[in-house]
Design a protein around this nucleic acid. Structure first.
Length: 224
DNA sequence: CACCAGGCAAGTA
DNA sequence: TACTTGCATGGT
């Protein structure tokens, strides 16, 4: 089968339906990085509350987060859930940022993609999805971000095995599409947006743009 | 009330 | 390597 064609069909249908989404929803790169950590296994609405609290306390900068006490930070990001581990992870990340790049996002972003990815994965609390979100949406690197929505949509359309791991899913996109940061940005945004929009209960689903693919299949609990 | 959300790390066998 | 568990809030 031709994966490239399937992926481009999906992209075209979602892009035609939603248009440009210009992700990530943040004002600046550092906010993207913080959001990437806070959104781990957490609803975005909860992350927004935590980000707002950080802004309200003037803490949304590498310098400020370096200074703040971890326990205090935990209380402030409380709405995002897992606040103790996430406070620890934010502290690990800004410590890394200060030690490796003097807290300068520009210097960090100038690193080669493979090198920077390996370094990020070495930070406590940053796994593959968080690293790739930072690389693509904060640093502009051409890497595809895979998450729960990505896995769901590829499984739904029979493009991956049920036991495919992160790297395997990422290969689906990166082996068959041009390595273009703008394309990867919009594609992943579309996937997440579709996942949020088309509800989990079939009865409440509005028509999904992808329904024209595999029209012979019966509806599943999750329609994207 | 139960279930879920844009993961990750540490422990066990 | 493969599987399990802890982490926690707020919305539906």
């Amino acid at each position: 089968m031709d994966c490239r064609n399937d992926l481009l069909r999906i992209y075209g249908l979602l892009d035609g339906h939603f248009g440009d989404l210009h992700w990530w929803p943040a004002e600046e790169p550092f906010e993207v990085m913080v959001g990437a950590i806070l959104t781990q296994n957490t609803a975005w609405a909860n992350v927004e509350k935590a980000i707002a609290a950080l802004k309200g306390n003037r803490l949304l900068s590498p310098e400020a987060l370096s200074r703040i006490d971890e326990g205090t930070l935990a209380r402030i990001i409380r709405p995002s859930g897992y606040y103790n581990v996430k406070a620890q992870r934010l502290k690990s990340f800004v410590r890394f940022l200060q030690e490796e790049y003097a807290g300068d996002i520009g210097i960090m972003s100038a690193e080669e993609l493979p090198t920077l990815r390996d370094k990020l994965l070495g930070v406590q609390g940053i796994g593959q999805e968080t690293a790739d979100s930072i690389l693509l949406y904060a640093c502009g690197k051409p890497v595809f971000v895979c998450d729960a929505y990505t896995r769901r949509i590829l499984q739904r359309h029979g493009l991956i095995d049920d036991d495919a791991d992160y790297h395997r899913i990422q290969e689906m996109f990166m082996d068959h599409l041009p390595h273009d940061a703008a394309l990867f940005n919009q594609f992943h945004a579309l996937i997440v947006y579709a996942g949020k929009t088309f509800c989990r209960k079939v009865s409440k689903c509005e028509p999904c743009p992808l329904r024209t693919l595999h029209a012979e299949r019966p509806p599943l609990p999750r329609c994207t």
